[in-house]
Simulated scan of single mutants.
Amino acid sequence: MIVSVRRLAVLTALCALGATLAACGTAPGPGAAPAPHAPRPARASAAPPAPLAPSRPPTLAPGPAGLTPVFAHASRTAGRTVALTFDADMTADQGPRAAAGEHFDNPGLIRALRTLKVPSTVFMTGRWAEQYPDQARALGHDPLFEVANHSYSHYAFTADCYGLPTVPEDRMRADVERAYTAFRAAGITDARPYFRFPGGCYDQRALRAVSGTGVTAVQWDVVSGDAFATDADAVARQVLDGVRPGSVVVMHCTRSAAPTTERVVSSVVPELRRRGYRFVKVSELIGTAGARR
């Protein structure tokens, strides 16, 4: 009897010791459930990354009295950059000529720019986008290019502008906005807020009329002379003689009106690269701190 009592006391002590060890966090055996008072640690969950806000293309601040700002070239001291720009011209009344076989596009030029990997800005009329929607959409979705506004009709915004028909003052803003509508219809979802006046012709009245669209007007400081030219070498020399750091070069993307442009690009681009120039889009030039109005 005495032995049984002693054994019982020993067993009781061992049970108490085991309970104490369990309470101090002794790890449970394999497959054992955790103690009820020890909750499972919460698994850390990484928060999903916040979506990147789309970057807004750089523009210039409005001019005096809120007039549309005008950009012609970037700073001459900001590095050897140059922007090649191409006007995809087609006036609102040239549909019959296109139907008769006249080519207002230039696929060979675009292929050359892609082969040479030249970032470029295409100033497109809305009428051109309607005539060549597949090409317009391809340009708008190719990161090598950016599409900007060259009006819908390619009618002049001043009188006496290379013989172009004129847009009435009260229709100027609508003409710019109609071009953006044509771009969207063709599948261009990211047309730039840059506008080139047809013929480069503008005055205070025109700058005031389009100010509500929020565009920056883009001119140039190097005239290639490719319009209606037949001597590609002469055009190339004119470009090479005129380019300075930060230059904007105007050319054309229209086979019928500028048949030499593909050959000009194929000779000018390697030579300018040899001289240390880097080709950029107009948006990069406008985004530089030294942009000039």
Results as ranks from 00 to 15, higher is better:
S4H: 10
R6P: 00
R7Y: 11
L8W: 13
L11E: 14
L17F: 11
L17I: 13
T20W: 12
T20K: 01
L21M: 09
C24F: 13
A27E: 15
A27N: 09
A27M: 12
P34C: 09
P36M: 09
R43G: 10
R43I: 14
S45E: 12
A47P: 08
P48C: 05
A53M: 13
P54K: 13
R56Q: 14
P62F: 03
V70W: 04
T85E: 08
T91Q: 11
D93S: 15
G95K: 14
P96E: 08
R97G: 02
G108W: 04
I110M: 06
I110T: 08
R111F: 00
T115S: 12
L116C: 06
V118A: 11
M124K: 00
Q131C: 07
Q135M: 13
N149H: 05
H150Y: 04
H154T: 05
T158H: 01
C161E: 05
P165K: 15
A174H: 05
R192T: 02
F197E: 00
P198R: 03
V222Y: 08
G225L: 08
A229F: 04
D241Q: 14
A257E: 14
A257I: 05
P259K: 11
V269Q: 03
E271S: 05
L272I: 08
R274Q: 11
G276N: 06
G276P: 05
V280C: 05
S283Q: 06
L285A: 07
L285I: 06
A289E: 11
G290Q: 08
